[in-house]
């Protein structure tokens, strides 16, 4: 684990003099001296791929939630419909 922290810090330092718009740190900014947190170590690895995964999963779970809500609404409407049919048939 310590080796990994060291290698992340090394790579950050190596980029200090590179100025491309997609650098991990802004040109001229101080290199972070705090050790990356456990969460950062995970999320920044693999070219930050896990950040995209988190975004996609959030959207996906939002979609699932929406489908469940729609199903519940449909069940309510169906119950209402059945009740009205029964009431009407009783009157006849």
């Amino acid at each position: 684990m310590e080796q990994e922290v060291q290698s992340i810090q090394d790579s950050l330092r190596a980029k200090e003099s590179i100025s491309t718009p997609f650098d991990s740190i802004w040109t001229g900014a101080d290199v972070p001296t705090v050790d990356p947190s456990a969460l950062e170590q995970v999320m920044l690895s693999n070219d930050k791929l896990y950040v995209v995964l988190a975004v996609v999963l959030l959207i996906w779970f939002g979609f699932i939630f929406f489908v469940y809500r729609t199903d519940r609404r449909l069940s309510q409407v169906e119950r209402t419909l059945e009740d009205r049919i029964y009431e009407r048939d009783d009157e006849v």
């Binding site: 995964l53 996609v56 999963l57 489908v67």
Partner: peptide, 21 residues
């Protein structure tokens, strides 16, 4: 329907995670 729906959501979540990881 409810059984298939729940299975599909778990299944596809696993596919997305595996697809990335």
């Amino acid at each position: 329907y409810a059984l298939v729906r729940n299975t599909v959501f778990v299944w596809l979540t696993a596919v997305v995670v595996a697809g990335f990881l």
